[in-house]
Amino acid sequence: MKKAAKLLYTQKIFSARDLPYQPQLTVLVAIFAVLGDRSDTDPIRAKLVRWYWCGVFGELYSSAIESRIAKDLTQVLRWIESGDSEPDTIKDANFAPNRLVRLYTRRSAAYKGLSALLLRDGGCDFLTGFEIDTLKYFEESIDIHHIFPRSWCDKNGIKPELYDSVVNKTPLSSRTNKFISGNAPSIYLSRLQKEAGISEERMDEILRSHIIDPVALRTDNFEDFFQARQKALLNRIEKAMGKSLILDANSLEDTEQFEHEEE
């Protein structure tokens, strides 16, 4: 269990609240129990991390859990120990663009997964510049907050199904969120830079750590921001899963429909 907790910690999953699927943790603990000290190598760790993210973003632990657990325990071990074919959880995993747009709350495993990925890959707080995972370690209040504030979006005719999507959210401290308030990004970025003495160049670096396009944010261009970040998040998911996403016709049509509705 300690080995499983350590692996999840490296992926910036610190508590039960952050855990996308509890049954997947059960499998991970069982795998470590079988492998013992043999698991303490980088290649095995990399395989387990890839399997883990495929389970999260493929949302494969949302149904038929007992059969998934049984298959993963045997298939993942066989894949690790003998180089056998990839487990079904990796083969079957896919994540469609329209699913990303429709992630609204922490109840979704993929929503929690994206939050953890942004922490894992170095997302920094807008105000302090500290990496968010450092702030979480010191028990500062961190949560998922809107990038384009909800009240600003309402005033500017942005639909809730867009601005409440995870595409328009990122992990930030409560202190930073108070600075954001209901202001346009161009206004709150200026206030943050002035308050904290942050240069524009450094602020742009911080924004990019959340895969946010600084130009779109500074010009209050929600459409350009949304489209660029959606693509960037999908690329981040592909990297975590170690495979290309299958973009079927329906997924692309749904994405275009959301963009058209915004116009």
Score class of each variant (00 low, 15 high):
Thr26Met: 05
Asn235Met: 12
Asp18Ile: 01
Glu259Val: 08
Phe258His: 11
His260Cys: 12
Gly242Val: 03
Phe14Gln: 06
Arg99Phe: 04
Glu66Trp: 02
Lys12Ile: 00
Asp254Phe: 07
Lys2Ser: 08
Ala228Gln: 07
Gly83Met: 08
Glu66Met: 11
Ile246His: 07
Ala33Tyr: 09
Asp40His: 10
Asp164Lys: 14
Leu28Ser: 01
Ile69Arg: 15
Phe222Tyr: 14
Tyr111Ala: 03
Ile69Glu: 15
Gly123Glu: 01
Leu48Asn: 08
Tyr9Phe: 13
Glu81Gly: 08
Thr170Gly: 12
Tyr104Ile: 06
Ile211Asn: 00
Tyr137Ser: 15
Gln11Asn: 06
Ser151Met: 14
Glu66Asp: 14
Met241Arg: 07
Ser151Lys: 14
Pro87Lys: 02
Ser151Pro: 01
Glu259Met: 13
Glu131Ser: 12
Pro43Ile: 03
Lys194Tyr: 02
Leu19His: 06
Met241His: 04
Ser82Gly: 04
Met241Thr: 03
Leu7Cys: 04
Tyr163Ile: 05
Thr89Phe: 09
Ser108Val: 03
Gln11Pro: 02
Arg150Tyr: 06
Ile187Gln: 09
Gln193Val: 02
Leu114Thr: 05
Asn250Lys: 11
Glu59Gln: 10
Ile147Met: 14
Lys6Ile: 05
Arg191Leu: 13
Phe57Arg: 03
Lys169Leu: 06
Phe126Gln: 00
Leu162Pro: 01
Thr170Ala: 14
Ser141Cys: 12
Lys155Glu: 09
Asn221Asp: 15
Thr26Gly: 06
Lys231Cys: 08
Pro20Gln: 14
Ala93Gly: 07
Leu118Asp: 03
Arg99Thr: 05
Asp248Leu: 06
Phe95Thr: 02
Gln257Met: 05
Ile211Phe: 04
Ile65Asp: 02
Asp220Phe: 10
Glu139Cys: 09
Arg38Ala: 11
Val34Glu: 03
Arg191Ser: 10
Lys178Asn: 07
Leu19Val: 10
Val215Lys: 05
Cys54Tyr: 10
Ser141Glu: 11
Ser174Phe: 06
Ser244Asn: 08
Glu81Leu: 15
Thr176Ser: 15
Phe226Ser: 05
Ile142Lys: 05
Asp40Tyr: 05
Ile198Lys: 00
Gly113Cys: 06
Ser251Leu: 04
Glu261Phe: 10
Leu192Asn: 00
Glu195Gly: 00
Phe226His: 01
Glu81Gln: 12
Leu60Tyr: 02
Ser141Phe: 15
Glu201Ser: 02
Leu114Val: 06
Phe14His: 07
Leu7Ala: 00
Met203Ala: 00
Lys3Asn: 10
Met241Glu: 07
Thr41Lys: 11
Leu114Gln: 03
Val56Lys: 03
Glu195Ser: 08
Lys178Arg: 15
Leu247Ser: 06
Glu256Asn: 12
Asn221Ala: 12
Asp164Thr: 11
Ser181His: 13
Val167Asp: 08
Glu139Pro: 07
